[in-house]
Design a protein around this nucleic acid. Structure first.
Lengths: 189, 189
DNA sequence: TCAAGACTGGACCGATCGGTACAGAACATG
DNA sequence: CATGTTCTGTACCGATCGGTCCAGTCTTGA
């Protein structure tokens, strides 16, 4: 009984990688079956809603992961500046310097956006909100903290796009350094 | 005879929009057929290589459009600062404040990236190069002009992602304003 | 005017798509 | 060990996929 829940959760990493690599349309059931080592019967046992339910489960796990490792540290840290630095470290690691696609960003650009609109929106909204709070507590002017947070989150997404297109992970790392340096130099807009 | 060339070019806008809206996998031949009003026979007459050749033709036109309207103005402008301002206007218009996806960026995040790698790489490389040149002539320190250009091009791509995910075109416009303001305030890193 | 070639739509192809049905294996619980 | 449930692979479904083929219709230059 408890096995079912664990097994379902165990599938999510393989599912996530498959959707990251092939997108929603490109991740066919046969590819998913191969990636997870499970037949269709098992997949539909855990996800009766098919691919749509798989994506939703993956998005939920991604959001939970970011909540634990990114959003909450930003919100609760005693030292907000250190938390922001830690955020850069964490996401650079997570996105493997742009070698790994951000599934939420990729889906946002695809035609699957409308189907999962609320999940995609919430992920970025939570990120911007948490970061804006940390910036604010780090001394950033109240009025522009949200704007600055959007700049940063957007830049991270753009860095993934650019590094992948140029096939240069260093570009991702460099953009991260530039964002961090800017935060250190000028807490004012 | 001349008709053929014209007709092929006339298809590109509809093709481009179809790939933008549905991605490479999602843009099925039946959808393409519907969007262009042409049967499969005609499509394969103009693009014997099928979907792959269609995408390549679209990418070539996009690159040509950007070369004319963005890259060359950046390179040749007498007033580089004005050219950079004009670039922001042009791309904001082109991407419809993030309502319209950047096909090159979207393909870069998809599994079609490898297939069109060189086209995707060149588009961004040319953009960064042209912008870095303009920044440099506008007084930006030589050593960091390329880095700053990558920041900007990446931020534009990220703004599209973020605005679409949040479903807030204003976010795209705001990020553009922030990028432009930053250029005006500090020509130094 | 008329042949040559550009162009067209749609029937058709095998492959694969997402999804269903189901019989049996593995399993936890009594 | 018996029983009921969970889990599994596979055969199968209709639909659609990308792509081919071709008979026929336009268009153009001689």
């Amino acid at each position: 009984m408890a096995r079912a829940i664990a097994a379902r959760a165990d599938l999510l990493p393989a599912l996530a990688e498959t959707f990251r690599e092939h997108g929603y349309e490109g991740a066919s059931l046969s590819r998913i079956s191969q990636a997870t080592g499970l037949g269709k019967g098992s997949l539909y046992h855990f996800f009766p809603g098919g691919k749509a339910e798989m994506v939703e489960a993956v998005l939920a796990e991604i959001e939970a992961w970011f909540a634990t490792h990114v959003f909450e540290p930003l919100r609760e840290a005693g030292d907000p500046e250190a938390a922001i630095e830690a955020m850069f470290e964490t996401v650079t690691d997570y996105f493997r310097s742009g070698r790994r696609v951000c599934l939420v960003g990729a889906l946002s650009l695809s035609d699957a956006r409308d189907r999962f609109a609320e999940d995609l929106r919430r992920y970025f909204a939570l990120w911007v909100e948490a970061l804006a709070g940390a910036l604010s507590r780090a001394g950033h002017p109240e009025g522009t903290a949200t704007a600055r947070a959007e700049d940063i989150v957007g830049s991270i997404q753009g860095a993934v796009v650019l590094a992948r297109a140029l096939d240069r992970p260093e570009t991702y790392d460099r953009i991260m350094l530039s964002l961090r340096a800017r935060g250190r130099l000028s807490p004012s807009p």
